[in-house]
Design a protein around this nucleic acid. Structure first.
Length: 462
RNA sequence: GGCCACGUGGCGGAGUGGUUACGCAGCGGUCUGCAAAACCGUUUACCCCGGUUCAAUUCCGGGCGUGGCCUCCA
């Protein structure tokens, strides 16, 4: 089976061939740990988890290295720590913020069915590598020291701008920010900057006397280098990272190692909106993974995410969540009633995934398997179970009815049972006017009845 | 303002230079006292205007709309 992936650099789907099939290497930009992860953060985590699973299947679980970093030194972290723990020393406050956020993030992604990456490097654990990179860049004339900062000289790299398809001229034309006076070129970016008093700080490179801290982009170049090497196979993240973050990573790594590439394939997931609007705190439609998890199992959130191809924009809506929950419930029932065991991974699903992670197409196949299983094909039920699990959908949690009951919270089961009992008596007496009246009364409460030979059961309406 | 994406039926959402995916909803049928569930069948589409072509939803140009980046926001 051939894997084809869309490469942002080439703007086309290309056959994926690892540099070393015995060690397939992927790097994905992870979270900055200062606040609860939101549903937009969940997208790359889920998307690249699917890719991780597929790579493990294609090349062998032991032959895939997936690195997803944790950024634990950053302006926003400092700001949050200062704000939340004004009485504490800054470093102590930062530790509290990053540790709590880190823990929450891992609870969230585990609930979303994501495998742990092979390695989760932290920025603060790679300061020596960052300094080494910076020294190299300065030595080769790709970076310079100015006002206790180290800056990358974009003019030293003719191909700067390739990934985001913009020239230095374009960028200048669009610039809306004041340029720091010490920059040689307005587009030069910070590799290292001096720390203010109290801020996290480390000995600076390049003979700078005052202590400092890294710029935003250098950490990823350093961590990718340490754990994956000078060049590797796949680099992923959200589309908003294309510029400047990934553009700058490429500049740093390629210039430091004199390589024609940093990663062979650059992958970017599309942006996410909420109910047709940009998600923002000011609009009040900011959805954290934690909020969503309070209402829905991680399976449902994951499935909803996979209903849309990863490169498409996705509009996160309540009705789409309902639809995801419903579809998943269909699969769950098929697997449960058939008492399905382990089956085979669906080849059409693998083929859909191998075509640039076409998860909607894969879901089509899940529906087909479910339909076949409902017609009595036991093997289809088993295959559905295994394939869902492969996709990270356990289907092991609450039924949709349990979820709805929990969400409603106001279900008076005794009252419902009493009404059903009265209706059963009416039906036995063939008083259908009364039995229908009771059913309508329950219907108004959102309760739907199901009559069978074994008796009457009820459900919450969808 | 500059650069880059996206725009498919009531909703979600793939895909393709010509044979109208798929799911939900709707409609018809089987089943049922009537329903619900399940199963069978089925209607509705490719933002607008040009161009290329025997043929465009699919390629090219323009417009409109939405979004992203240029403000260390995935």
């Amino acid at each position: 089976m051939q894997l084809r992936l869309y490469d942002t650099l080439m703007r086309s789907k290309r056959l994926f061939e690892p540099l070393d099939p015995a060690r397939v290497r992927m790097y994905v930009c992870g979270p900055t740990v200062y606040d609860f992860a939101h549903i937009g953060n969940a997208r790359p985590v889920i998307v690249f988890d699917v890719l991780f699973r597929l790579l493990r299947h294609l090349y062998g679980p032991e032959r895939v290295v997936y690195a997803r970093n944790i950024t634990d030194v950053d302006d926003k972290i400092i700001a949050r720590a200062t704000e939340e723990h004004p009485g504490l020393p800054l470093n102590e406050a930062i530790r509290i913020v990053t540790e709590a956020t880190d823990r929450q993030f891992h609870e969230d992604v585990e609930a979303l069915g994501c495998l742990p990456p092979t390695i989760e490097p932290r920025a603060t654990g790679h300061i020596p590598e960052m300094r080494a990179l910076i020294e190299r860049l300065i030595g080769d004339g790709h970076a310079y020291v100015a006002a206790d900062h180290v800056l990358f000289a974009v003019g030293s790299m003719p191909e700067y701008g390739m990934l985001s398809k913009r020239s230095l001229d374009d960028m200048l034309a669009g610039a809306r920010v004041d340029v720091a006076p010490y920059k040689r070129d307005p587009m030069d970016f910070v590799l290292w900057k001096p720390s203010k008093p109290g801020e996290p700080s480390w000995p600076s490179p390049a003979g700078i006397a005052v202590e400092g801290r890294p710029g935003w982009h250098i950490e990823c170049s350093a961590m990718a280098w340490k754990h994956l090497g000078e060049t590797f196979d796949i680099h992923g993240g959200g589309i908003d990272l294309v510029f400047p973050h990934h553009e700058n990573e490429i500049a740093q790594s390629r210039c430091a190692f004199h390589t024609p590439i940093m990663a062979r394939t650059w992958m970017h997931n599309g942006f996410l909106q909420v109910e047709g609007e940009k998600m923002s705190k000011s609009l009040g439609n900011f959805i954290t993974i934690r909020d969503l998890r309070a209402e829905w199992p991680g399976d449902v959130i994951r499935f909803q995410m996979l209903m849309t191809h990863y490169r498409q924009p996705i509009d996160w809506t309540r009705s789409a969540t309902e639809q995801a929950a419903q579809a998943l419930e269909g699969f769950r029932q098929v697997i449960t009633t058939a008492q399905a065991r382990d089956g085979r991974l669906s080849t059409p699903v693998l083929e859909a995934l191998a075509d640039d992670l076409n998860t909607p197409q894969a879901i089509v196949e899940l529906h087909r398997l479910a339909a076949e299983a409902r017609r009595g094909n036991f093997h289809a039920a088993c295959d559905l179970r295994s394939t869902c699990r492969f996709l990270g959908l356990t289907l092991a949690g609450d039924s949709l009815q349990d979820i709805r009951k929990r969400q409603r919270g106001d279900i008076d089961e005794a009252h419902i049972a009493a009404l059903i009992d009265a209706r059963t008596k009416a039906r036995a007496a063939r008083n259908f006017a009364e039995s229908d009246r009771i059913r309508d009364e329950l219907g108004a409460m959102g309760v739907v009845l199901k009559d069978s030979k074994e008796g009457t059961t009820w459900e919450i309406a969808g």
